[in-house]
């Protein structure tokens, strides 16, 4: 490694000295490259933002009037002494890994990513690099995702069962990304799909930018179990069990997250049903992605960092844990965060 690294880890966020910019900073800085619109990555208060064209509409919707510029996947931009480009991360629509090259040395900050194609997000593309910054939210060999069609079948079987029993099915999901993915997995033949305002607003933003989503109905106060029998309601997790949810009763509630793989967590958080579906890579996905980069140096953040790092080192990589202040939120963070997805 050269004495002046391409990216460094500072209290403000991941910093590139050659280009004088930060990636997903969490304190106010002048220039920010944003991997995706989840609130723990795209924060308010930066001087200038750069993100993919696909990520910008949601960021504007959430952050309001910001000075932001869009960039296409794969487009190369020279910023100071660095060449910067954004590459699909497959996490949510518009999400990107950010590639930074200085003097021939290539670093990639992956943000959050998943390997499987969810049908909505631009699928993950491995980027060859020397240094790879990876998340490890599900970096334990107990996490193995089933194919999306399999989980979709579980989901629709549950919904159909609820509908046949005269109950509403209500699914807790983060309003950006996970909610839209679930909506696209549902079988519209079973009944209407009702969305909480937080979800429906994000749907509208995505539709406006050209993303195709199945038909959904805003669950305003006139929409109830009576007016819309056999319904599936998609709502932020905080709305489950709230006064808002009462008018859809009798109902069964479910929760969709990678954490549902663990029985203990499922019993604590799932309501009636837990579905194992995540916008993060599982164990095999993380290892596959890391191999594909051909990087020798791996920086592990967000999740089971210590265990995952030890494993990578045993397998011959030069891996290290990124300092703790970069740690993301988990299942139990605020609903707005996408980290649990």
């Amino acid at each position: 490694m050269s004495s002046n690294p391409v990216l460094t880890f500072t209290p403000e966020g991941i910093y590139c000295p050659a280009g004088d910019f930060y990636i997903d900073p969490w304190r106010r800085v002048d220039r920010a490259m944003i991997t995706h619109g989840h609130s723990d990555h795209a924060r308010w208060g930066m001087g200038r933002y750069l993100a993919t064209h696909e990520a910008l509409p949601v960021m504007r919707h959430r952050l309001g009037d910001i000075e932001a510029e869009g960039i296409a996947y794969g487009e190369r931009r020279v910023i100071g002494g660095a060449i910067v480009s954004f590459h699909p991360a497959g996490h949510v629509p518009g999400s990107a890994q950010i590639r930074v090259e200085v003097g021939g040395e290539v670093w990639v900050a992956s943000g959050d990513y998943k390997i499987i194609d969810d049908g909505l997000s631009t699928p993950f593309e491995p980027v060859r690099c020397h240094h790879f910054i990876t998340e490890s939210t599900f970096g334990l060999p107990v996490f193995h995702w089933e194919p999306q069609q399999t989980v979709a079948a579980y989901l629709n079987d549950w919904w159909r069962g609820c509908a046949d029993a005269g109950k509403t099915a209500m699914l807790g999901a983060y309003s950006l990304g996970k909610a839209q993915r679930l909506i696209s997995m549902l079988d519209p033949e079973i009944g209407p799909v009702l969305c909480h305002a937080a979800v429906e607003n994000t749907n509208a933003v995505m539709r406006a930018q050209g993303i195709t989503l199945p038909e959904t109905i805003l669950a305003n106060k006139d929409v109830t179990a009576k007016t819309h029998p056999r319904a599936m309601v998609i709502a932020p997790p905080s709305a489950l069990g709230s006064a808002w949810s009462k008018r859809f009763g009798p109902l069964e509630s479910g929760f969709a997250s990678g954490w549902m793989a663990m029985r203990g967590v499922r019993r604590r958080r799932a309501g009636d049903r837990g579905f194992i579906i995540s916008d993060h890579a599982d164990w095999d996905g993380l290892l596959w992605a890391i191999k594909q980069t051909e990087a020798e140096n791996i920086y592990v953040t967000h999740g089971y960092t210590d265990i995952f790092t030890r494993y990578l080192n045993e397998q011959g990589w030069n891996a290290q844990v990124v300092p703790t202040q970069f740690e993301g939120e988990s299942l139990d963070a605020s609903d707005d965060s996408g980290e649990a997805a």
């Binding site: 663990m262 029985r263 203990g264 967590v265 019993r267 604590r268 988990s330 299942l331 139990d332």
Partner: peptide, 8 residues
């Protein structure tokens, strides 16, 4: 914790 409270 573990089990039910694994990620808390």
């Amino acid at each position: 914790g573990s089990g039910r409270r694994a990620n808390l």
